[in-house]
Amino acid sequence: MSEFESKVVMIAGGARGIGRAIATSLAGAGAQIVLVDAPAPMQTLGYPLPDADALESAVAEIRAAGGTCTGYELDVRDRPRVAETVQRCIAEAGRIDMLVNCAGVGSVSDAGEMDDLTWSEVVDTNLNGFYNLVRAVTAHMTARGSGNIVAVVGDSARRGAAGLSHVSAAGWATIGLAKSLALETADAGVAVNVLSLGPVDTELSSSAEFRSAVADLRHVVHGQDAIEAMGRRHPNCEPWVPMEDVVRAARFLLGGGTSMTGSVLDVSAGLSALNSS
């Protein structure tokens, strides 16, 4: 029997991209998946966010493959609604065993030219959204004496990244929050870890601006040039971290207990070799 058999796994940002891939994998391993997604539209991202139809089709696809899945429309920035949705999920599914936060957004702007909304749409989603989720779910997990929380962040959470100061700040802060929460909950059997990823080929990383920024360029290059620049940036010479490697790492983190908590697992095409530890 799989370690995920019958586990209730809430995946925020699960309608597409990384969240959806993790959901599909865990559903195939017998988990009961709860997808939350379809935030209010944002103005500064330059790409569309998944809507209710996208969420519905993700749920339908997992069910069609024989998996168990429900979906809730939720913007993780809406703290009361997050609390309400978590309670509703606990009432309907009986519990939440695991929480995976993939609800992250990105944009590119130098700090000196950044407007307030560009800052706040990223920080409110990536940092405060994760806080809203853990604030809502942690007491349930500690009361049950078990639980596993994984926050997914981009590699700019591990270093400075020009053009991405808001994404980087939110990512670093997410790690600080995860480590703090890990210290508060380890004795109650709850593990909290961070999965830090190099670029993954999703909607978030579809713009030439974003690709150029993660390639550490200070000018924008397009098309194949951007992808080749990303490959040159990475010690393993690959532009992308393959989704299957992301899923494998997420499953590793989710499958463990508190022996591994407060950790950051870097799956970053070799960029972690540049980390100070």
């Binding site: 130098d110 700090a111 000196g112 920080v123 940092l127 806080y131 700019s156 959470a157 270093r159 400075g160 990244a161 020009a162 053009g163 991405l164 100061s165 808001h166 980087s168 700040a169 939110a170 990512g171 670093w172 802060a173 997410t174 790690i175 600080g176 929050l177 480590k179 703090s180 929460l181 508060e184």
Partner: peptide, 20 residues
């Protein structure tokens, strides 16, 4: 956790702006 998160975030921001 509130304070730690905020102060971690400051370092990420500072390093990014330093490069810019």
């Amino acid at each position: 956790a509130n304070y730690a998160a905020s102060k971690w975030g400051v370092i990420g921001f500072v390093k990014s702006v330093a490069i810019e």
